[in-house]
Structure formats: structure tokens, C-alpha cells
């Protein structure tokens, strides 16, 4: 069962990669990167269920935090201002 779910999530990631490769502007690529970061949390949850080890959820938590901070940094860069504002 979980192999099918994993394959569907891989298909989601391929659609995101299509948008990263073809995106006409920089903002499109950033949106796709943000979505990719949330999708990884789903992979980690599946890994935790199938193996039964709880450190996979630690990876998911820290990945969510780092993806959020990275997206904020990219958005500030896009806005073209300093980080102290």
C-alpha cells in the first residue's frame, strides 16, 4: 500500500521539478521549491510508519522549520531589500 503512496508523491515531485525547470520567472521557481519542502514531510511520515523508528519524525520537524526559513529568505531576496527590515 505504501509503495503506491510513495509513487504518487514522487509524481508530485516530478511536477514540481517541471515547474522549476520551465518557470518563466524566478517567483515561479520559488513557489515550486516551497511546495517541494512541504512534500518531503509526507515522505518522512511514511518512512516513520513503515520502519517504526521515531527519529524520522525529527527529520520531518526540522525539515519543515528549515524550509520555512529558506522560503522567507528567498522572498526577502526577491523583494530586493535588506534583511534587517
Amino acid at each position: 500500500m505504501f509503495q503506491i503512496f510513495d509513487l504518487v508523491l514522487v509524481a508530485c515531485c516530478l511536477l514540481c521539478f517541471y515547474r522549476i525547470y520551465h518557470g518563466p520567472t524566478a517567483a515561479d521557481r520559488m513557489v515550486a521549491i516551497d511546495i517541494l519542502g512541504i512534500l518531503v514531510v509526507g515522505f518522512c511520515a511514511f518512512c516513520a510508519i513503515t520502519t517504526g523508528k521515531d527519529f524520522c519524525m525529527n527529520v520531518a520537524l526540522s525539515w519543515a522549520v528549515l524550509s520555512f526559513v529558506g522560503t522567507l529568505t528567498l522572498a526577502k531576496y526577491l523583494e530586493g531589500k535588506g534583511f534587517d527590515e
Partner: peptide, 15 residues
């Protein structure tokens, strides 16, 4: 997730 979407939309409009 909504905060990141908000920041990206604002940044894209200002760019």
C-alpha cells in the same frame, strides 16, 4: 505555510 505564501506573494508583487 500561509506565512510563506504571504511573503512570496508580496515579494513577487514588489519585484
Amino acid at each position: 505555510s500561509p506565512t510563506a505564501a504571504h511573503a512570496l506573494a508580496r515579494g513577487a508583487h514588489k519585484a
